[in-house]
Design a protein around this nucleic acid. Structure first.
Lengths: 393, 393
DNA sequence: TTTTCCAATGTAAGCGCTTAGACCAAGGAT
DNA sequence: ATCCTTGGTCTAAGCGCTTACATTGGAAAA
């Protein structure tokens, strides 16, 4: 291994000078610089990152932790689309750091499996800051991590207080989508394919649905299935629903994400149920394949790439200036109207979703909230175009 | 920051003892261990990765470099599916290192843009080994890198000698697909939508096509379009073809990858050309959305995840035992028959592609080869099921 | 000429960790 | 009683780099 010393010796200068040449900024005589540069090139010297990190007091590396839900089953399957989420986030993060001299350390964790937490801990020794996807890491553990280094959670629970959170405005998005179903299409009898209880985004979406339902006595929730965000569980939900409801189908099936909506679509197709004529089906997230199904899926676009970018920006900021207080940042979503909701075939409308008027209600004090917002507050809210919305700080 | 010294002092032992406790293996009296562990927990001590890397003589980090073709245009577009490739590779790599204590540093580079090479170089100072996607990094530079640390190229030119290469058997896959078109569907007049000249995989695929064509005088190549692997360029290829060929369409369009095949499909759909009745269209790679188009795309499955896994395995191996000589490893592909090739609607057949009999011809001595294999050697070859095939070493 | 000043360069003290080798009891063998 | 072991622990020398501070040798100022 070629070290700084080797270069210094061969160039007949001190290590300090070589270091200065390598980093360019300091004043070094041109002739000296040229000589050193030549030796560097000749020897193929590259500074050792570990030594640099140790000497400066930071590593210039941030960690991205992707918490996968459940165990990965099939290999190359539509199931793995849940990872699509992280791929996009990754893209955003990468775009953000590309031109700064930061590196990205990436790790995938199984959902909250205990043996993984130590991995997270040791990871925290290798980076200057941590980006954690999904709010699945226990809050207590998060607090412990956040004490050591800046942490920002992506798509986590916006009421998390230990660390920064950057997440889509799930509540507003869900409200807009359900409003569309109720007001624009007159769908009254809804069925809910929910996500796992541990998922904070599913919770926000569910809350919005319930609020809207509460505000409209004419509407009713026919039932609920607790899925796991996978296509398979969506299919099961569809089959169960079909078996249970005989010939009185609901007007619409509201799914907590696109994968499950696709599963429902598949179950319906298999049973010969026509969508949206007999039932509307809507999802959430706007994953790419959703537009390719028949009928194309109506959904809410979650700005995943932007999520990654913003989270990264925030993290870099916190690393640069420690001592900031954690805050939650809500990114606006977009209603994506295609035809599975009842809109005419060929429809492709993207409609920005403004923050809810009572967005403060999205951040209840501490405990898991249950219907904190009084009914009637969750009106469609489809004017204005304010862009970002900080819930605090 | 809490250091080893802090722990040692508080526990009343030496740093050596603390270190031994942290790493578990050495003999430490139980009572001592317990005391140290307690202090560690109380202080929330986590070893500093940089210091560890410096002290042991390795970092336990491997780098994954994804070389993106062209500049990323649209945001959330089907175009970005080229990245799908890396997402799968990433998955494979991650799966491989998950249970060993390695970390993954990931970097995206613009195709061979000069200012990026220094980034690669400095990256090489932060890792123990490098995985480089696509054979787009200039071979000379690769050699320079490989002198410093183990490097394995994923999906690169199998004739590369400076570094290890792990790649799909593009030639065999392409041969199998074209044979299917010619023999099973009697398509004689072909049109080729090729990839960029810099892409080694496109070259292998092209070579197989030409060999087959050369072996069958009854078949002819009606034309060729040089695309850039994007949907857009595929669309353009389709339009150009339509404009040029009037009402004498080719029997089949062979595309160098799925994105372009999808583009062609879209152009044909727009013009009312029926696939596969009027023209067959086939792709390569088996990206996920291909199965969702109408008609579902016939293609060759490239084991991207496996590629990542194997490449990683090889890299780890080389890191463990330096001094191995670089070798190229060819991974088997799979023919994926759906209906865009002329197979009846609903067809879904996956057929393993055995290595070509003359697989040695796939590794010409040094220079860019041109038709090294004598015509007639590229027969359909559809028996046998040998699994892996090393072209050398 | 002497003094002053400053650009250019060198010296050396860490950064936090690992680990070879030294040291020390406490048995066990002789 | 003396000499070896040997398990448990400590000492201290690095790992390769950065950087505060010291040094040096002109050029400018006096």
């Amino acid at each position: 291994m070629v070290t700084l010393y080797d270069v210094a010796r061969l160039a007949g200068v001190s290590t300090a000078t070589v270091s200065r040449v390598v980093h360019g900024q300091d004043r070094v005589r041109d002739s000296t610089r040229a000589r050193v540069l030549e030796v560097i090139d000749q020897l193929g010297y590259v500074p050792d990152g570990a030594a640099q990190s140790l000497s400066r007091r930071h590593k210039n590396v941030i960690g991205l932790v992707c918490v996968e839900r459940q165990s990965p089953r099939q290999q190359y399957d539509i199931e793995s689309m849940s990872l699509l989420f992280y791929d996009e986030i990754l893209r955003g993060v990468e775009a953000r750091i590309r031109h700064h001299e930061w590196s990205l350390l990436i790790t995938y964790l199984q959902e909250a499996s205990d043996p993984d937490l130590p991995r997270l801990l040791s990871l925290s020794g290798q980076v200057d800051g941590l980006l954690i996807g999904e709010g699945v890491v226990p809050s207590a553990f998060l607090a412990r991590l956040a004490k050591r280094l800046p942490v920002v959670v992506i798509a986590g629970d916006p009421s998390e207080r230990a660390a920064d959170v950057v997440t889509a405005d799930n509540r507003a998005g869900s409200a807009a989508l359900v409003s569309h179903l109720i007001y624009d299409h007159g769908r009254r009898r809804l069925y809910h394919v929910d996500g796992p209880p541990s998922a904070p985004d599913a919770r926000e979406r569910r809350l919005a649905l319930h609020e809207l339902l509460g505000a409209h006595p004419a509407c009713q929730l026919l039932g609920r299935y607790e899925g796991m965000f996978s296509v398979g569980s969506g299919e099961e939900a569809g089959e169960k629903l079909l078996a249970a409801s005989g010939n009185s189908l609901p007007d619409a099936v509201v799914c907590a994400n696109d994968q499950m909506a696709i599963g429902v679509l598949q179950a319906f197709a298999k049973a010969g149920v026509r969508v949206p004529e007999q039932v509307a089906v809507v999802g959430f997230d706007d994953i790419f394949p959703g537009s390719l199904y028949d009928p194309p899926l109506t959904t809410v676009h979650q700005p995943m790439r932007l999520l990654g970018e913003q989270a990264c920006t925030r993290l870099l900021d916190r690393i640069a200036r420690p001592g900031l207080r954690p805050k939650a940042q809500l990114l606006p979503t977009e209603l994506v109207l295609r035809s599975s909701c009842g809109c005419p075939p060929g429809t492709v409308i993207r409609r920005p979703v403004p923050p809810l008027r009572t967005s403060r209600a999205a951040r209840p004090s501490r405990t898991t909230p249950s219907r904190t917002t009084p009914p009637g507050d969750a009106a469609p809210a489809r004017r204005g175009t304010r862009k970002n919305s900080d819930a605090s700080n």
